[in-house]
Simulated assay, not measured.
Amino acid sequence: MERRNDTRDAATAPAQPPSEVVHDRFWAQDLRSAIRCAAVLLGLLLLIDWGAGTITALRALLWTTLAVLLFLVLYPTRVSVSEGRLVARGLRGTRRVRTDHLVSVRCLDGVGQRLVLRDSFGARVEIDPRVLVANPPLWHRLDEDARVSARRGSLSCGATALRRVSARIDRETARTVFKVSGLD
């Protein structure tokens, strides 16, 4: 029996048979907000220019370009998680990481926090931790796969970052429960 040499990239090969995919349930809302912000900026700039009597085709093009740039900055990344895989679709393309083969998880602090996930196949994905906080099913799936990576011994650094995200999600969940129950 002859062995066949499979040259597929392990990062794009299915982890296991397809399972339930969990999506960011607020992505469409965030997209609408980005569109509204860009439209309001464009409308205000055109209105001010028109009111001042200085509107020209070139200035309208400049304001439209500015509004489009704002939209591009605000465009949300669409995050989905299934068993063994996290997919982030944004303007720069689609990035995938095998969550059951994580090597590192880092939390980048700064103006906008980012959670950077790397797998043993060299794939890298950056997501906003607020997506996980707002979508507990996404976090649950990611956390389960990160535990699989830790049991396998591939997750060399990232336990602290995962604990911080977990604590943040627990705080937000408790705050929501208190607010809903009137104990706020």
Rank of each mutant, 00 (worst) to 15 (best):
A167S: 12
R163M: 13
R89Q: 14
L47G: 14
G90N: 05
D109T: 10
D145Y: 01
S149L: 08
R95H: 13
R95T: 08
A67R: 04
R175D: 14
N135I: 07
R89C: 06
L69S: 15
S80E: 15
L74D: 02
R89A: 12
A60Y: 03
G90E: 04
R78I: 02
V133H: 06
G53E: 08
D143N: 10
L69E: 15
I55H: 01
L47Q: 07
R152Q: 15
K179E: 15
V103L: 07
V81L: 07
V131G: 01
R164D: 08
L74W: 01
R96H: 09
V133R: 10
L142Y: 04
R124K: 14
G51I: 02
A57G: 14
S166C: 08
T65N: 00
T99R: 06
R85V: 10
L41T: 11
T173K: 11
T173N: 10
A161G: 13
E126N: 11
C107D: 09
L91N: 02
V81K: 01
I169G: 04
V111A: 12
F178Y: 14
T64L: 13
L58V: 13
G84A: 04
V177Q: 14
A67P: 02
D109C: 03
A161M: 10
V148T: 14
R124Q: 11
A88M: 03
A134N: 12
D143P: 03
W50T: 08
L61I: 10
E83R: 10
A167N: 11
A167E: 12
T99A: 04
L138M: 09
V40W: 12
R85T: 09
L46V: 09
R168L: 09
R130I: 01
S104C: 08
S156A: 12
H140R: 12
V97P: 05
G110T: 05
A38I: 06
A123I: 01
G93N: 04
V79P: 02
L102R: 02
V177L: 13
S120D: 14
R141F: 00
V40R: 09
R96S: 11
R59E: 05
E144Q: 14
V148Q: 10
K179V: 11
A146S: 15
R95Q: 14
Q113L: 00
V73G: 11
P76K: 08
A57E: 10
G153A: 09
R175E: 12
G153Q: 05
S120H: 11
A88R: 00
P129N: 00
G84Q: 01
V165C: 04
D100W: 07
L46H: 05
P136C: 02
V131P: 05
R147N: 13
L162I: 10
T56F: 03
T176S: 15
V87F: 01
T65G: 15
G51V: 04
A88Y: 06
E126V: 02
T54R: 14
W139T: 01
L45M: 12
L66T: 10
N135P: 01
V177F: 09
G158I: 01
V105L: 02
E172D: 09
S156D: 13
V87K: 01
W139A: 02
